[in-house]
Design a protein around this nucleic acid. Structure first.
Length: 230
DNA sequence: TTCCTGGCGG
DNA sequence: CCGCCGGGAA
């Protein structure tokens, strides 16, 4: 039919996607929280939850003086539940927070810094041993609290990948492996990469796509289809 | 009503 | 694999 449209994109690589995202968003320097403790709390609270509702809970925690492992563990679970109520599934999350920081206390003499300085793989398996900490939450903590290189895969990452039309295996590790293949294992890159994917998914690659102005439009079948129709 | 940066228990 | 947790905003 009309072949005046540019040819379909060749195989898109993780490096090409990152280059475009970084050119668009720059160094985002995530995670939006003041310190490691808040990063870990946020990583749990944001499970299946809009970040807006997590922020409200974080502000209430700060207002109550819950700014570290000891204050949190000293808090009765009912009071913790009340403080984080806005983040939803608050009974589960209150238990998960307590289980998480109990593990930290048990493995690192209660020092969060000591825990976060431990070898990455050991830290990951310790995190995964906590009920309620799955691969995404664990990797978010490793990358944004411990600042060690791990690629974080979340619902946004999968959505963007699917829209672009890239087929990886369905498993968490398959998706992560696709992204890490061919790009440097670097904390800063992984940090920016995931942060940019989140921004992209919130701004453009939403569930109902808003392709106008999307930086990945040229490498995305969904985007080209959208721009054709106008 | 649906959806939101998951993960667990059945 | 499926249902559940759950408040807040659109």
């Amino acid at each position: 039919m009309d072949d005046e449209f540019p040819d379909p994109p060749g195989p898109t690589t993780p490096g090409e996607i990152y280059a475009v995202l970084h050119a668009h968003y720059g160094d985002l320097e995530w995670w939006p929280a003041p310190g490691p403790f808040q990063v870990m709390v946020g990583a749990v609270l944001t499970q299946r939850t809009a970040w807006r509702n997590v922020e409200m809970a974080m502000e209430r925690l700060e207002g109550a003086g819950i700014d570290g492992v000891d204050p949190l563990m000293a808090l009765p679970v009912e009071e913790l539940e009340a403080l984080i109520r806005s983040s939803g599934t608050y009974r589960q999350k209150a238990r998960r927070l307590r289980d998480l920081f109990a593990m930290v206390q048990g493995t690192s003499d209660g020092s969060l810094e000591t825990f976060l300085a431990r070898p990455r793989d050991r830290m990951r398996s310790d995190l995964l041993s906590v009920n309620g900490i799955g691969p995404e939450t664990a990797d978010s903590i490793i990358l944004y609290a411990a600042k060690q290189p791990v690629f974080v895969v979340d619902a946004y990452t999968r959505r963007v990948l699917g829209r672009i039309g890239i087929e990886t295996g369905p498993s968490y590790d398959h998706v992560a492996a696709w992204f890490t293949r061919g790009i440097e294992e670097d904390v800063g890159i992984y940090n920016n990469y995931h942060a940019a994917m989140v921004e992209l998914a919130k701004g453009y690659c939403r569930k109902e796509p808003r392709c106008d102005g999307c930086p990945l439009c040229s490498m995305c079948p969904t985007g080209r289809e959208a721009s054709r129709g106008q």
